[in-house]
């Protein structure tokens, strides 16, 4: 059995900044253009009224917090993707079933 080495624990705990800690800064015009582009390229985001509202409000939330638009949207896409797919693909499961049958 694999014992989790302390270094992995340490790495997780030592990480000086989560993406959250980098978030609260004024977006540059370039940031906003990149976010707009991401929305144009992704139907899921483009059709979402909440995303549209955030976009129109320069990614300031209702409670006045400034989001890092690019990072927020990229994380949202990963979140949606993993909500649908999780960590394991159908291929993984098929291969495991084949190997264990």
């Amino acid at each position: 059995m694999y014992v989790l080495p302390n270094k992995y624990i340490d790495m997780s705990l030592e990480s000086p900044q989560t993406p959250q800690e980098n978030l609260r800064k004024e977006p540059t015009q370039e940031d906003l253009q990149a976010a707009d582009q991401l929305i144009i390229e992704n139907e899921l985001l483009a059709q979402n009224p909440r995303v549209k509202m955030l976009q129109e409000n320069n990614f300031v939330t209702e409670d006045g917090r400034q989001l890092d638009a690019g990072n927020f949207l990229a994380a949202m896409l990963d979140y949606i993707g993993t909500q649908e797919a999780g960590s394991l693909t159908e291929e993984d499961i098929s291969a495991a079933v084949a190997n264990n049958s």
Binding site: T18, P19, Q20, L23, N48, R50, V51, L54, T61, R65, L67, N71, F72, A74, A75, M76, L77, D78, Y79, I80, G81, T82, Q83, A85, G86, S87, L88, T89
Partner: peptide, 22 residues
């Protein structure tokens, strides 16, 4: 894939907004 899951959860301060979007 775990990195994607981690990144997807990284905006945890805005969990409510995430749920609204999905």
């Amino acid at each position: 894939r775990f990195e994607k899951i981690k990144h997807g959860l990284s905006q945890h301060e805005d969990a409510g907004t995430f749920l609204a979007i999905i």
